[in-house]
């Protein structure tokens, strides 16, 4: 873990459970803890269904986690309600995967971007409109042209820019990006990644960036956390984690990324073929053992603890690579 100094967000032993049809309880996030330092971007990687989106939503208390603590600037968000929660909401904002779905189809863009100001009762209408225009310009759209149009008149990439403008208009300290580029073409993805990096520098943002694509994550994150079936596998500085992954799952994810060079024919994925086990009924012991090429007897029985293996690097594996 990072040292306590300069931590903006700290998540401790977070658990999120859902009741499912048939009375089953699904533990979407199971005892996850990490910290994000001020100005840092933490990447959160994992396959769909691993609980990374549930984790992100628990951080902004939508819905609040079942147990555990979320500390923003030392203040525990999980206990807050009403006006106190509303005030802290200003500090954390989120952008979503589906750029079209995250915009109200019947609201003009100007109102969409100014909406947070309206909710926080800041300024008059004209003032809010002016601020929305500034924000639209900041994310690379032509405000005069955009402000009176509706979302369906924009492309996916432009909608994502609008979402970013809306998320940043309150000048939050912490921005959660939930797969913000997964639905976009490679060329548009690059534009949005560059924009996020630019916005991060301009507004001094701290970010939690969720993606299933390790190459995208590396491009924007200082540190990376890998999740598998509701648990944290590995966390560490990007450069090191990519150079020498300690958890076999991280290695498998790395080997799966398609890289644009024909000589490097995709190496065999370091993963036992098979599907992701059901999160309602996770395997005993290490959850990854059913797909792990290095699994031994102990992995099937004893769940590995998260251990520190180097400065700022922790891994939950009996036999780290």
């Amino acid at each position: 873990m990072m040292s306590g100094n300069g931590e903006l967000l700290k998540v401790e032993d977070l658990v999120v459970t859902f009741n499912q049809a048939g009375g089953q309880r699904l533990r979407a996030v199971d005892g996850v803890g990490f910290a994000v330092a001020k100005g840092e971007t933490l990447g959160l990687v994992g396959e769909s269904g691993c609980g990374k989106s549930s984790l992100a939503r628990a951080v902004i208390q939508l819905p609040p986690p079942t147990s555990g603590r979320v500390l923003l600037d030392g203040e525990d968000l999980t206990g807050l309600a009403g006006e106190a929660l509303r005030r802290t909401r200003r500090k954390i904002q989120m952008i979503f995967q589906d750029p079209i779905s995250s915009l109200n189809p019947r609201r003009r863009i100007g109102d969409t971007v100014a909406q947070p100001l309206r909710i926080m009762r800041r300024g008059g209408r004209a003032e809010r409109d002016a601020q929305a225009c500034d924000m639209l310009a900041a994310v690379g759209l032509d405000p005069g042209d955009a402000i009176d149009r509706l979302p369906h008149q924009f492309s996916g990439g432009q909608c994502q820019r609008i979402s970013i403008a809306r998320a940043l208009i309150l000048e939050p300290e912490f921005l959660i990006c939930d797969e913000p580029v997964s639905a976009l073409d490679v060329s548009v993805q690059a534009q949005i990644l560059n924009l996020l990096r630019e916005m991060r520098a301009r507004y001094g943002l701290t970010m939690l960036f969720i993606s299933h694509d390790l190459a995208v994550v590396k491009n924007i994150c200082d540190r990376v956390a890998v999740m598998y079936l509701a648990k944290l596998c590995e966390i560490g500085p990007s450069e090191e984690l990519y150079r020498s992954p300690a958890h076999p799952y991280t290695a498998a994810l790395l080997s799966a990324i398609p890289q644009p060079s024909p000589e490097r024919r995709p190496a065999k994925i370091a993963l036992v073929p098979g599907e992701l086990p059901s999160p309602t009924d996770p395997p005993p012991g290490c959850r990854f053992h059913t797909r792990c090429p290095h699994a031994k007897a102990i992995c099937k029985q004893v769940e590995p603890e998260v251990k520190e293996v180097g400065p700022g690097r922790s891994v939950a594996c009996h036999f780290p690579l």
């Binding site: 909401r89 989120m94 995250s102």
Partner: peptide
């Protein structure tokens, strides 16, 4: 279920305001 509703909640909009405006 759409994300613009989640986004509005994340901004601190009340339930009534979400029902009426979103």
């Amino acid at each position: 279920e759409r994300e613009f509703v989640t986004a509005a909640k994340a901004m601190g909009a009340s339930d009534v305001s979400i029902l009426a405006r979103e």
